[in-house]
Design a binder for these strands. Structure first.
Lengths: 130, 130
DNA sequence: CTTGACTCTCCCATGATGGGAAGGTTTACG
DNA sequence: CGTAAACCTTCCCATCATGGGAGAGTCAAG
């Protein structure tokens, strides 16, 4: 299977697959005589694993750690769990930050009449210390 | 006032101020004979405006639009409000995406006993299509 | 006059991805 | 068999907002 087909099968772009290989997230696999990368079903499995981890917001570095654990029959599930919990805490922090921004903005927007006049509490709120 | 003091007074780094000038977000101001940038109180005001807008998650491009409106005595507050509402919608989308990730992860983590054994529903969940 | 704290510009790095150029390969069709 | 389309290769550059650091110039205090 060529890279395009592997990309379609795993739901990512060929660019991404090459990039993942370039940064060492996945190993360089076999090539045809003319230099085309070749992928088998198990490679697609791996790529799908990566894609799902990305869908859950894991960084490529974290995914590297997840892949090590995935490969390791001696792993402790506690290690995987710890990684996931760290990531949840990270998500929580980001959600909280965005939610705070949202609340402040909503308050400003609510105070703004939003008509043709220049008077605007949103700009005032940005201009003045809170 | 030199750039370092302006940076401290506005809560951003000197690097950022130079960068904002470089991309045209703020105008190049006066310089001393030897080339040092000089800032006055009103410049610090502007920088603080930018900083607060960034704290609310506006992109530098959006901040450029906000600054235009800020400068324009003929502005309609409706334009400001629209910009803010667009940004709120953007925040909502990001919050929703992160919240979805979080929920999925929490479910996986809850299923994982997290001990010394290799058996791990988190890895299984990443490996199998959902 | 030296030292240390500033400032200047310029280039490079981040993280994850896309765009595109210039060139080689494979496939399908007439 | 020839050619065109659809692939593939590597390499470089762009994004977004920011930081790091080199190498050089400036300023103030001791």
């Amino acid at each position: 299977m060529n890279i395009g087909e592997a990309a379609r099968a795993s739901g990512m772009s060929a660019k991404m697959i090459r990039h993942y290989e370039g940064i060492g997230l996945i190993r360089p696999g076999t090539r045809t005589f003319s230099g085309y990368r070749q992928y088998a079903e198990r490679d697609v499995h791996l790529l799908r694993f990566i894609r799902r981890a990305r869908d859950l917001g894991f960084s490529l570095e974290q995914i590297g750690q997840l892949l090590s654990l995935w490969d390791d029959p001696e792993r402790a599930s506690a290690d995987v769990k710890r990684l996931a919990q760290t990531h949840i805490a990270d998500l929580d922090a980001r959600i909280a930050a965005l939610t705070d921004m949202r609340a402040t903005l909503v308050a400003l927007v609510r105070a703004c009449h939003g008509d043709h006049r220049p008077d605007c509490p949103i700009l005032q709120g940005l201009a003045a210390p809170r």
